[in-house]
Design a binder for these strands. Sequence first.
DNA 1: ATTAAACTGAACAAAGTGTTCAGTAATGAA
DNA 2: TTCATTACTGAACACTTTGTTCAGTTTAAT
Lengths: 200, 200
Amino acid sequence: MKGNELDRRVLKTRQAINEALFSLMEEKRYNKITIQDIIDRANVGRSTFYSHFATKDELLFSSVEDELEILNQYIKSYIEYDGEKPRVNSVMELFEHIQEDSKIVKGLFKTESADFFFEKVEIYWNHRLEEYLQSKLPLGKNPKVPIKILTNHISSTLINLLKWWVNNNMSYTPSQMDQYFRDLINPCIDSVFYNDSTKS
Amino acid sequence: MKGNELDRRVLKTRQAINEALFSLMEEKRYNKITIQDIIDRANVGRSTFYSHFATKDELLFSSVEDELEILNQYIKSYIEYDGEKPRVNSVMELFEHIQEDSKIVKGLFKTESADFFFEKVEIYWNHRLEEYLQSKLPLGKNPKVPIKILTNHISSTLINLLKWWVNNNMSYTPSQMDQYFRDLINPCIDSVFYNDSTKS
DNA sequence: ATTAAACTGAACAAAGTGTTCAGTAATGAA
DNA sequence: TTCATTACTGAACACTTTGTTCAGTTTAAT
């Protein structure tokens, strides 16, 4: 065992700890889970835990990194430009992914610390959206609402829909949720960019 | 001191504890504040604290109850019905209130536990909005998006705007923010109730 | 002055955190 | 198989925080 490749034992141990955390999150709130709970569930020594993670939050974040990467990827096919109007594209695959992966996600959505996760998702999405909308701004038009507020609105609407859906037993299909998302956002994009006559 | 009126000392003590918490929240995260911190700042004995509040969360919630009541009141003038279309009404006063009261609110918005607060606001607002929209549903029309999802969208959009605003140094006026809110929501209400032709 | 309620703060038990370290187990290389 | 290395174990420890208890003190109404 001299090679610089990671010992498989290490990965196995980390995964056991990881799974113990999410298993526990199905039973109680993240804040109430102790490190003792985790190492008992994972069958791992106390010092082993601390050799891998300095704090519980660090464990949570590391557990969630892959999920974060996946969600970030979805944003890339998130907007289309049909030559005339920017519109949000289908996010059905995102909802489908959440549905399949609901074990990790359900725990995460219950976590009080979930916000640190969604914050990261939102920051990435906002960045992408802003880049896109800025570059496609109709010349000579001033958006009725600042771009930063609009992008923030779009991201948080999607995240909010996801949360609502998960917390209401996913009682609509991914396809329906996708449609609802676009019904909520596209008229608003139209109005912000093109419709100067909307009274309010 | 036999009367059944509350001792003024009690109120004074509770207020001292209360103010200590919010004073501390300007300096560090709620999770990192210990009860020892609070009683030191409030100049109050340990057992006094526990005679008033069982936990730190209970203190936070009690501190925030008045604020909650105020925010709930704003929702009541939140929607108008002009005889033809339901539309969100001005929420400028809400933004103005937040601006004036920013001491308590800023601390609250930083709190990881803020969500328990906004959840309560959202539940109340959703309830009111749903009641309203249901009763005013245009006959013979089916909304494109379920009412519950729409109400949830409206509430969370407003809360999200508030959060964004506070976290970005309130760099727009309450009047502007009010306008942005309506620009984001009204086209979407129109579309959900009246426009069957929005392609997506 | 008397009295009842509120506050004080030290002492305590319990639970959790994070570190240390001597010992054990696993594994790749010789 | 043996050896060396690295990872894991778990008991012991110091430290922090929590929440309770209680004897004594302060406050203020009567």
